[in-house]
Simulated scan of single mutants.
Amino acid sequence: MNTHIARSAILALLGVALAGCAAMGHASEASSPRPTPAHSASEGTTQNPVPTKPAGPSALVVSDGAGWSAAGLEGQVPAPGSCHVRKAADGGDLPDPACTPGARDGRISDTNVDATIGRPGGYTASVRPPAQMTEAAKKKILGAYGIPWSEASKYELDHYLPLCLGSSSDVRNLWPQRNVFLPGLGHETSMVHNSKDLVEDYLCDAVKKHKIPLSKAQDAMVVDWTTAVQALGLPPIPASDQGTSAGGSDD
């Protein structure tokens, strides 16, 4: 009988001791910091980044000047067949942004429009490269876009960002623009007046008259020239601005 009582007392004491250890374990666990889960909020943000904005003027090549010298045009012409013309929503042609991102003259900005592109007496003639220099470049740039030289007469070597908007003649601003003649404003045997020329003339005039900032016009033009007028909030190009005879723009 005494042995039975002793065993019961020992078991009771063990039960109390085990309960105390369990309580201490819970308290320690509650006070210890838990590791951050692998699927934390900060990591989730990395996995789902905020979409980037479309390329604007920051994507433009910035030249120290007009983009050419006696040694030739600045920039490297891409490999033959490596560039591809894209189509805008309205069917107009757009250059390959990897080959023709556009280039601007770093000397020209919003603060000196009146003294540069808007100066009396004209501006573009003073920075345009010689015809023989651009003609030599045209063959290489056509090749980069996979266009045979036999088709050269169907294309204009165009400054994607026009000279009148402070661009440079770096080859990364030159592309083969397909001749799309406006009704009554051009044909195969006359000087070309492409549909893009109207947009260029309209935006250049708006910048010179300080209706829109130069930087915003550059941005809209290189993103998509076919939507630049609307993107800038300007009224549609009036019919009176379209002229009555063929002629190239001041690009």
Rank of each mutant, 00 (worst) to 15 (best):
G243L: 12
D224V: 08
V207K: 08
L161D: 03
S190H: 05
K208W: 08
P162Y: 13
S245P: 06
L174M: 01
T189N: 01
W175L: 00
S168F: 13
G184A: 11
Y160M: 08
L161H: 05
L214P: 08
T189H: 03
S215F: 02
C204D: 03
S150D: 10
C204Q: 01
S195Q: 12
Q177K: 11
H210D: 08
S240P: 13
S153D: 10
S240D: 15
D205R: 14
A239T: 15
A152C: 00
M221L: 15
E151K: 09
D224F: 06
A228G: 10
S169N: 13
Y202K: 04
D219N: 15
P235G: 04
E188T: 11
H159M: 10
W225N: 11
M221T: 15
L232D: 08
K154T: 00
C164V: 15
P176M: 00
H210R: 14
L185M: 13
D219K: 09
K196G: 04
S153R: 10
V171A: 07
P236W: 12
S190P: 00
V229A: 01
L161K: 01
S245N: 14
S167R: 06
D197R: 01
Q218R: 15
L232K: 09
L157K: 04
N173P: 09
L185P: 02
K196Q: 11
D205L: 13
L157N: 04
G233I: 09
P236Q: 13
Q242R: 15
E188S: 12
L214N: 02
N173I: 10
S150H: 06
Q177Y: 08
K154N: 06
S169C: 14
M191T: 08
Q242F: 14
L214V: 06
E188A: 12
A220F: 04
T189Y: 02
P176W: 00
P235E: 09
S153G: 07
K216Y: 05
A228T: 06
R178I: 06
K216Q: 15
P162V: 05
P236D: 14
K154Q: 07
L174E: 02
A217Q: 09
V222G: 10
Q218T: 08
E200K: 10
K209S: 07
K154C: 00
W149I: 04
G186A: 08
P148Y: 08
H193Q: 10
S215T: 13
L165G: 01
P213T: 11
S167C: 11
S215N: 12
S167Q: 07
V229L: 07
D158V: 06
L214K: 04
D241I: 12
C164W: 13
S168V: 09
A228L: 10
L182F: 04
S169T: 12
L203V: 13
P183F: 02
R172E: 05
L157Q: 03
L165E: 11
D224R: 06
D170W: 11
S195T: 13
D201F: 05
W175Q: 00
A217N: 10
S167G: 01
P235R: 01
D224N: 15
K196Y: 12
Y155M: 04
Q218K: 10
A217S: 13
